[in-house]
Simulated assay, not measured.
Amino acid sequence: MRAVQFSEYGPPEVLQVAEVPEPHAGPGEIRIAVRASGLSAGEARLRSGEMRHVVPLTFPYRTGFDAAGVVDEVGDGVTGVRVGDEVFGMAHSAVRGANADHVVLTAWAPKPAVWDWAEAGGAAGLVETATRVFDRLAAGSGDTVLIQGAAGGVGTVAGQLAAVRGARVIGTASARNHDFLRSLGVEPTTYGPGLVERVRALAPAGVDAVFDCAGGALPDLVALAGDPARVVTIADTTAAAHGVHMSHGVPDDGTALAANADRPAVHGLGLAVDLAAQGRLRIPVAAAFPLTHVAAAHELSETRHARGKIILMH
């Protein structure tokens, strides 16, 4: 089967679509024939080598964490799903490999009928990440939540999920994305110098929680929250220096990185199915590329101007 991988750090050109052996579903797992899979900004940072001192890789490294497709193998002990079902879900975070013709999923849910394959292919990672962070922040009804980088893949879903929890949501994005954020129920403002003053003008009483999806502004975000414990980042590797938690869901493999990991919030997938059916959760797709054009997809990710999730179609 075809799978995207790279064997050295570098620019998008190091990515290859290689022929590799097919994986098979083990106990508690399912395998799908992939129709669409997601590309994350974090994985582009892994490929570039930016994260090599935080998340060292073993080569060749296969990419892709979330995907959607048709079940073609069901492992021992699995109930409630059959061969032929359409699902979306996540691979094991230590194995990945979702940017491939077949992938084994360890968490999944039925594909909502209102989502096309592209939307479903990028949904699981966004939903899990946003749910994990808001669970940690205990953000909910009556809170004012600030999302830094609200027009990106995770940010677009985080804004919607915060609103579902009853929070008032303020999100930063470039001016060209402000109407888009309003369509998601998010009050927009711009990022960059003057952020503290702009947010305080919108929320004079302050913000209760901050979800940083972009990085590069932690001093301002801590100032707005009033306490570094009220800020969680998924993008800024300087988090510890500011007393901020950097959230990730790597497996419990005994490493120092795993010791600081949050428990993956796979319960968010079932909620996403219900919200999608109610018309309360959209998965904005920035662009969809054929699997063979994965380098171009990574190039778009590196611009950091993609509005929504970047998808690979299979």
Rank of each mutant, 00 (worst) to 15 (best):
S141K: 12
V154R: 13
W108G: 07
L161C: 04
M90R: 12
L221H: 05
N99D: 15
D116H: 02
A162G: 14
V133W: 02
G171M: 06
T79D: 15
A113H: 08
V154Q: 14
G140A: 04
D135I: 00
R198T: 04
V87N: 01
L161P: 02
E119W: 00
A109N: 03
G171W: 11
H92L: 14
V81F: 05
A139Y: 01
G153H: 13
A217V: 01
G142Q: 11
A203Y: 00
V210P: 03
R165P: 04
A120C: 01
A203V: 02
V196C: 09
L184F: 07
Q160A: 11
G97V: 13
R182E: 12
D143I: 03
W117K: 01
A209K: 02
A124I: 03
F134T: 05
D179S: 13
R182Y: 10
R176N: 15
G206E: 08
D208F: 00
C213L: 09
A123F: 03
T172D: 06
D208S: 12
T129A: 10
V157S: 04
A138G: 08
L161A: 02
V133A: 09
R165S: 09
V145F: 05
G84T: 08
L218P: 06
E187L: 04
V186R: 02
P112G: 11
L221Q: 12
A139V: 12
G159Q: 07
T144W: 01
S183W: 11
T189H: 08
E86Y: 00
F211R: 07
D208I: 03
G152M: 15
I170N: 07
H92I: 13
I147L: 08
G142F: 06
F134S: 03
A113C: 00
L218R: 03
G206K: 12
G194T: 11
L105N: 06
D208T: 06
D85C: 10
D179L: 08
V207M: 05
G80H: 08
R165Y: 00
V83H: 10
A120W: 00
A113S: 03
V114W: 00
D220T: 12
F211G: 07
E119G: 06
G192R: 14
A162I: 05
A158E: 11
G153W: 06
G192H: 09
F134L: 12
K111A: 01
E86H: 10
R168Q: 12
E187K: 05
S141N: 13
W117V: 00
N177E: 14
G171T: 10
R182G: 09
R182I: 11
D220F: 03
A151N: 12
L105I: 15
L146A: 05
F88L: 04
D135T: 06
L202V: 06
V207A: 06
V169G: 04
V81P: 07
A209G: 08
G80E: 12
P112D: 10
D116M: 01
V104A: 14
P112F: 01
E119L: 00
V145E: 05
T189N: 09
V127D: 04
A167S: 14
V199I: 10
Q148I: 07
G192T: 08
R165Q: 02
A98Q: 14
G84P: 11
A163H: 05
A150S: 07
W115V: 04
A100T: 15
L195I: 15
V199M: 09
G185C: 10
D85A: 14
V87A: 11
A201L: 05
